[in-house]
């Protein structure tokens, strides 16, 4: 019986442990972060039966509103740091990878299949002080079908738009967590942290926060 109840509670968690996440947020970052996670939890529960486009726009807005863009060097004191969603919401600040990872994780939490999501390295042309600069950037792409044009979830432009309308971005490479983990298992094959890439590293840290 005990195993069965454990199994159901695991199913109810929808790939992540909301209580653990909320508790950790309170412990590490205080009441505000805690409330944000409760709000996020509520949002996820509400989105269970919504359409994909509803889920995309809600999750996208949530992070774009809650979190301020900031360079890693200011937030973390290092040039490139991949933060977990807990750290992102806890500090209410993060850069493009942190936004994309958080959106990717919680879209999966509202049952958007992994196959439809890609974290994409893009070359972005930005205007800074009326001068065109080219920056390395990361966005989350959503493919309704494998062949369709993706929708782009970006933190620079809060609205979701199709890839064709984002002339400022050119894709370089995309990936998700498929093939990272062995077979159908969600557990990493090796427990050693020494040989993790940044991507695997952040996935492992998220696991510690309660996000599977």
């Amino acid at each position: 019986m005990m195993f069965l109840s454990l199994f159901f509670s695991y199913l109810a968690a929808e790939g992540y442990d909301a209580n653990k996440l909320a508790t950790l947020a309170k412990q590490k970052y205080g009441d505000e972060a805690h409330n944000d996670f409760l709000e996020l939890q509520q949002l996820i529960t509400n989105l269970k039966n919504s359409t994909d486009s509803e889920k995309l726009s809600q999750i996208n807005s949530f992070f774009n509103q809650k979190v301020m863009f900031a360079d890693d060097i200011h937030v973390w004191g290092q040039s490139d740091y991949w933060a977990t969603p807990l750290e992102l919401i806890g500090l209410h600040a993060g850069d493009c990878e942190d936004f994309s990872i958080a959106k990717y994780v919680f879209l999966k939490a509202v049952n958007i299949p992994n196959d439809k999501l890609r974290l994409t390295y893009v070359r972005a042309e930005l205007l800074e002080n009326n001068r065109k600069v080219i920056k390395a950037h990361m966005v989350l792409s959503y493919y309704a079908t494998p062949q369709s044009e993706p929708l782009i979830l970006d933190n620079l432009i809060p609205q979701i738009s199709p890839a064709s309308s984002r002339r400022d971005l050119s894709p370089v490479f995309s990936f998700n967590d498929k093939g990272l983990w062995v077979g159908n298992s969600t557990k990493p094959k090796s427990d050693s942290l020494s040989n993790l890439s940044r991507w695997r590293d952040v996935l492992a840290r998220m696991r510690a926060d309660g996000i599977e």
Binding site: T120, Q147, P150, F173
Partner: peptide, 14 residues
């Protein structure tokens, strides 16, 4: 040992 898997993009599309 499992096969290594990676995605190939053509512009924005898969």
């Amino acid at each position: 040992v499992d096969a290594g898997v990676a995605e190939i993009q053509e512009g924005w599309s898969q």
